[in-house]
Design a protein around this nucleic acid. Structure first.
Length: 612
RNA sequence: GGACCCGUGGUGUAGCGGCCCAACAUGCCAGCCUGUCACGCUGGAGAUCGCCGGUUCGAAUCCGGUCGGGUCCGCCA
């Protein structure tokens, strides 16, 4: 990549270039000073080339090289030469040649960096990394991941354009809606007292683009949510947002699947996809088999219903749970029969933290192991029955059965968390594999006891399965007077989530596309006609002018990039992320504002409440 | 909003009541070295142990508070 200041990048030189006089520019990666002979590893984004500076050959260049330090920026002119036999470096793409310097220009000197750039494995305090993010980005691991993310976004764009999707930008200054996550607010100077909100997603805009006849839209969209942060959540994040007209659920899923396969191949061609086509689970199946709606399918260790196995065994907790309409579920931790008391106590603690009331265990001795069957209920139900229960949980010789009894869902959810934990501890998941899985047929609503209304479990614009539309009724007969007994609670949404290796990549749905149906759904969610008019007048009105049936999805680009680069934290795939308290340590944001700026906006800041 | 973990030369760690005006590695500085590639060898500089207060004859070490970072719960239509 020839430019005015260089003829080759630091990755280009080969033996076929031997004899050429060229200039290279880059950073000093490492310097090895042997006195009369100095070696400089010159680095740029593309690679590393060894520069040799010989005091006899080039005394001026040698004098400059003597004063050069790590991370100086140089332009080196010299001759590409094949290395002396036996001094080739197989670790470098350019390792068979070197640049024999005749002249060195220092383009920039550099202070000693707060951490070393040339050691990829060095662990550095994250606050320091964030303060000097531009230096951290210079290091190989972060640089590699940001490049991979670039390929991810590029592949997404290419695939969508090729398939006829139109890329449309939507505004960042929009209307605040009181639903869902907290909005980031932007005060309006032209209309003091009024505010814009930053979008939590382009949801309504993309539906309006369907009403506009765009047919297929996508966008790499920045989204904002003012909620507490996590390793997989930042206040601003990026979604692949797309919407399609005249589609049903299988159309969207088929496209996303085709797209995801192409994109995965472009970013991580060496990583096999577990199963094609992607497995599809109903939400119910996912909960029953994995205890979670984003199961990690890279390993089995599924949950088993133990109702039949424990019925009448004479163990009170189980009988009570079943009598109350609850569940008894178990799983088998392979090879953990020898688990110590302490390990089991830890797992019990974990299960309780996950909402379980307790944890029952049965260890089946492995071949050659001393002693018989052990477990917390062996005494109560007898060895034979305990063995049968463990077997029903999927345990064989040498395995540890773990059992939870609780109300519906709670039992599975608690055990599901144990499954994830154990899967990690026992290293059951192949880290190379990409296990995509669809989960669909979610319940549309869940009862919000606090506000006495139904709440969308995922997306309030989702439609419901055709056969469930009859359920969108209330016991009261008035859609504006919902109650927890309403049949609406049984309605399943036309909602589909895509999970990857136990992470929620994203979700989408087929939307309601008539004013009447959307409005009825809003009513169940507690929105009066007046509130609907105030909050959603745009989309409701639009649906009166001929809206096509449509649906789409939004996928988390940060999470996708993290998963494809083997990271568990999206900060590691973002160029300039914020801390868990929302600070940008490099720019020192957020920061105080000038009184004049506030005055212009018609704002006054309330005094910060003093801490007791 | 809550719980837990961490904060010691530039960086990463050790030290966890007196043996410490703090140790090790690396980085940094200087000198030597013509085939190194994590170059090597020799020497040197560099820390009031995040901050404030308390306990104690004595605090990096114990206690309280505070600031910063991280993890988790709540939250995240």
């Amino acid at each position: 990549m020839k430019t005015s200041l260089r003829d080759l990048t630091c990755a280009d030189a080969r033996t076929t270039d031997a004899g050429r006089t060229v200039s290279l520019s880059g950073w000093v990666h490492r310097r090895r000073d042997l006195g009369q002979l100095i070696f400089l590893d010159l680095r740029d984004r593309y690679g590393i080339t060894q520069v040799v500076v010989d005091a006899q050959e080039a005394p001026d260049a040698h004098a400059v090289a003597s004063g050069v330090r790590s991370e100086f920026v140089l332009r080196v002119t010299g001759t590409i030469a094949t290395r002396l036999a036996g001094t080739e470096n197989a670790k470098l793409a350019t390792g068979e040649v070197e640049l024999r310097a005749s002249a060195i220009a220092i383009l920039s000197s550099a202070r000693t960096t707060p951490f070393v750039i040339n050691e990829p494995d060095a662990e550095i305090d994250e606050a320091v990394r964030l303060h000097y993010r531009y230096l951290d980005l210079r290091r190989e691991p972060l640089q590699r991941r940001i490049l991979a993310r670039g390929r991810l976004v590029q592949a997404i764009r290419e695939v969508h354009h090729a398939a006829g999707f139109v890329e449309v930008e939507t505004p960042l200054l929009i209307k605040s809606t009181p639903e869902g996550a907290r909005d980031f607010i932007v005060p309006s100077r032209l209309q003091p007292g009024n505010v814009y909100a930053l979008p939590q997603s382009p949801q309504q805009m993309k539906q309006l683009l369907m009403v506009a006849g765009m047919d297929r839209y996508f966008q790499i969209a920045r989204c904002f949510r003012d909620e507490d942060l996590r390793g997989d959540r930042q206040p601003e994040f990026t979604q692949l947002d797309l919407e399609m007209s005249f589609v049903a659920e299988p159309d969207v899923m088929a496209w996303v699947e085709e797209m995801a396969i192409a994109v995965s191949g472009a970013v991580a061609p060496e990583r096999p996809i577990l199963q094609l086509p992607f497995p599809v689970l109903t939400w119910r199946e996912a909960i029953d088999r994995y205890g979670i709606d984003k199961p990690d399918l890279r390993f089995g260790m599924e949950l088993h219903d133990l109702a039949d196995a424990v019925r009448g065994a004479g163990f009170g907790i189980f009988d009570e749970a079943l009598a109350a309409g609850g569940r008894v579920v178990g799983l088998a931790a392979p090879g953990m029969a020898a688990a110590t008391r302490k390990e089991i106590d830890e797992l019990t603690e974990l299960a309780k933290k996950a909402g379980a009331k307790g944890l029952v265990w049965i260890a089946l001795p492995g071949p050659g192991a001393e002693g018989g069957i052990r477990g917390s209920i062996v005494k109560a139900v007898g060895e034979e029955r305990a063995a049968a229960i463990a077997a029903a949980a999927g345990a064989g010789a040498g395995d540890l059965a773990l059992i939870v009894a609780d109300r519906d869902i709670h039992a599975q959810e608690a055990l599901g968390k144990l499954r994830v934990e154990l899967g990690g501890r026992l290293r059951l998941a192949d880290p190379r594999v990409l296990a995509y899985v669809w989960v669909h047929q979610f319940p549309m609503y869940q009862w919000d006891e606090e506000n006495k209304r139904w709440d969308a479990t995922h997306n309030p614009f989702s439609g419901v399965m055709a056969e469930d539309e009859v359920l969108l009724e209330t016991v009261s007969g008035d859609p504006y007077r919902p109650s927890p007994e309403d049949p609406a609670g049984r309605a399943r949404a036309l909602q589909y989530d895509l999970a990857l290796n136990g992470w929620e990549l994203g979700g989408g749905s087929i939307r309601f596309h008539t004013r009447e149906k959307l409005s009825r759904s809003f009513a169940l969610m507690g929105h009066s006609p007046e509130q609907q008019e105030a909050k959603f007048s745009g989309i409701l009105e639009a649906f009166e002018f001929g809206a096509p049936p449509h649906g789409g999805i939004a996928l988390g680009v940060d999470r996708w990039a993290a998963l494809l680069t083997d990271q568990t934290n999206i900060r590691e795939v973002m160029a300039f992320p914020k801390t868990s308290s929302g600070s940008d340590l490099m720019l020192d944001a957020p920061s105080p504002v000038e009184p004049a700026q506030l005055a212009e906006l018609g704002l006054a800041l309330a005094p910060r409440p003093a801490k007791g």
